[in-house]
Design a protein around this nucleic acid. Structure first.
Lengths: 346, 346
DNA sequence: TGTTAGCACTCCACACAAATGAGTGCTAAC
DNA sequence: GTTAGCACTCATTTGTGTGGAGTGCTAACA
């Protein structure tokens, strides 16, 4: 059996109607509301075929049809392959973002805006720290035997670490050490800090090798402990208002899932390994494609953002499978443009 | 009518039973399960009196009784005035906290632990920045015409600000400026940075007065823009599992409330103005005492933590009115002890 | 005078049946 | 190939009855 023109039109009508109403769509509804010029009976025959082809399904015998994951996939692929409006410039976003100095604050603001605009759950990972270039390291005196290390990388990401050391240091001394550290590390990727390098740099520090070693070990460990990327989310409660989660059990379950940062991290960073298909920069996983029971009613839209030409972070949206993909993708594209502009404007 | 010994015992029995079951408590239950040596009929008479006195109420004519806010208040006041076990030392908490260097991370870990331990929603405000003493200011070179200002205060709180300036600066120059800033500001409260002081310090900086002014103005504005305190929460989803929120409408409403950081901030920081009664350091607001429709089914337990002897932040728990106050208060006290130890260990 | 057993009454919660209605598949006619 | 008509299915809604938990009141009792 072929998926001819008419079948496709009916499928589109079903999906479009279902996106609006969250109710199974019957033949009569389509005949009335979509100008296809065929009667409900004919539509019923075609629907029967579409079901056999796996694009739609019936919740129960005497109900209308809802799209299957395969149906959504076809629909989404059509959207992705269509020509887009180029992302429009969002001046209010720019205004918002121009206030934020630090990248963490920036990203938190971004997800808040994105969640508000789409009414979905927005998620973002901070740039993969290990792949960032070191811009500057500065040691700051805190108190007796405590020092703050500030490490600034690409995109002006600043990470702070409190170090305990065995002797007192004043700021001029720390400035000298900072100078040594910068000389050795400036321009390196964070992940290039490894044990041999640490030993080598300690040699330069003479009798101040303890503190130098501490700084580098802390960074080394942070990178290897998956404190590498933080996850920020916003708008999880948007899910509670959706009819698909009107059952408390389901609502609780999705909220718990969205609350698990480690799980979300893994979901987001799939984008980085070879498994998933990236189309036009935007990657969509529908329901069961997420390979996870908790996400089977949800879709995930992700895209990467680049710093210095490298894809270092992922930003995405989680919503019901029944979300408005078109506008979600569009919002995401517009925002990513603003982000990258801000992050690379040097 | 008097609240005699027997009435009080019955009230305690009602509350205790209701805390366990979340079901209205009947006279027969009390007669059977609590060894008061009186019959259901007598208890009914007493309950009728307790209702007239406003300590309990009936959801409907033929139901058992539930505590009113006034009843809870009496019960909580009894708990608060009773002698406590002194907070026990939680070695696992100490282990957890010893890892965290920055106060923000520390506080985030704290609320996570607290929420997990109590199964409630834990909230904390970061120390009131404006009241903190400045320990150190350091300027760090970022890129052409961009500088990172790191300001460290009491409790080793580090705040980072990205500044745009009109000329290039190298790190040695920035170190000199940092030195000037430290000389002028070390030991001052953040809120003491005001416009006259800024002018005064700019004079010291000679032709570098632009950047010095920028730093101080950014701090000045941050303090006056209520970016003063951040709020961290954890465990909001714990509320979803409670019978009092088994209605989706209520569940959604409470989740939305807990999601509003500004609202929670205001709720927490009430502790700082004269309005609320602080008993033994722990402050409890029950249901309608919170003066807010969304919180009418919840209680809030708060306490302040001190840095350098000053109360600079608030940590608290939000749960149903029917929560286990005794153990919630205890958990809070234990944790606050660990926090203050960590923050003041210099 | 306080306590208690007995009883009528109230009202929620739950189960079950009936009615409703949206939607289908099939058949026969066009 | 298309469509009207019809019997059938099944989730949802509505109505009804029953059980049970709990009360308040009254009268008897210590």
């Amino acid at each position: 059996m072929e998926l001819n023109e008419r079948k496709l039109k009916i499928l589109e009508a079903i999906i479009s109607n279902y996106l609006d109403t969250a109710e199974p769509v019957g033949s009569r509804t389509i005949s009335k509301n979509y100008d296809l010029g065929i009667s409900p009976a004919t539509i019923r025959n075609e629907m029967s075929d579409l079901e056999e082809l796996g694009f739609i399904m019936q919740p129960h015998t005497s109900a209308g049809r809802i799209p299957s994951d395969k149906g959504y996939r076809l629909y989404v692929d059509m959207i992705l392959s269509a020509k887009y409006d180029s992302p429009k410039h969002l001046s209010y976003v720019e205004a918002l973002l121009s206030k934020a100095g630090r990248i963490e604050t920036l990203l938190q603001d971004i997800v808040a805006v994105l969640a508000k605009e789409t009414n979905l759950t927005a998620i973002v990972s901070t740039p993969q720290y290990s792949k960032c270039k070191i811009k500057n390291i500065q040691l700051i005196e805190l108190e007796s035997q405590k020092v703050l290390a500030v490490i600034v990388t690409d995109g002006n990401m600043a990470n702070n670490y409190v170090l305990e050391i065995n002797e007192d240091m004043d700021q001029p001394m720390l400035n000298k050490l900072s100078f040594i550290l910068n000389n050795q590390l400036h321009g390196l990727d964070v992940e290039e800090i490894n044990l041999p390098l640490i030993e080598k740099i300690k040699a330069f520090a003479g009798n101040q090798d303890e503190i130098i070693g501490k700084v580098l070990e802390v960074v080394f460990q942070a990178v290897h402990n998956n404190e590498d990327t933080q996850i920020y989310t916003s708008g999880a409660i948007n899910m509670l208002r959706l009819p698909e989660f009107s059952d408390l059990e389901k609502a609780t379950s999705i909220m718990e899932t969205l609350d698990k940062k480690d799980y979300i991290r893994q979901l987001l960073l799939n984008d980085f390994d070879g498994e998933s298909i990236v189309t036009d920069g935007v990657n969509i996983k529908i329901g069961s494609e997420n390979n996870n029971e908790n996400m089977k009613d949800c879709s995930l839209i992700t895209t990467t953002y680049h710093i210095g030409g490298k894809p270092l972070g992922v930003i995405g949206l989680i919503g019901p499978k029944r979300m408005d993909y078109q506008s979600a993708i569009f919002s995401l594209k517009c925002l990513i443009k603003e982000i990258e502009k801000r992050m690379n404007d040097s």
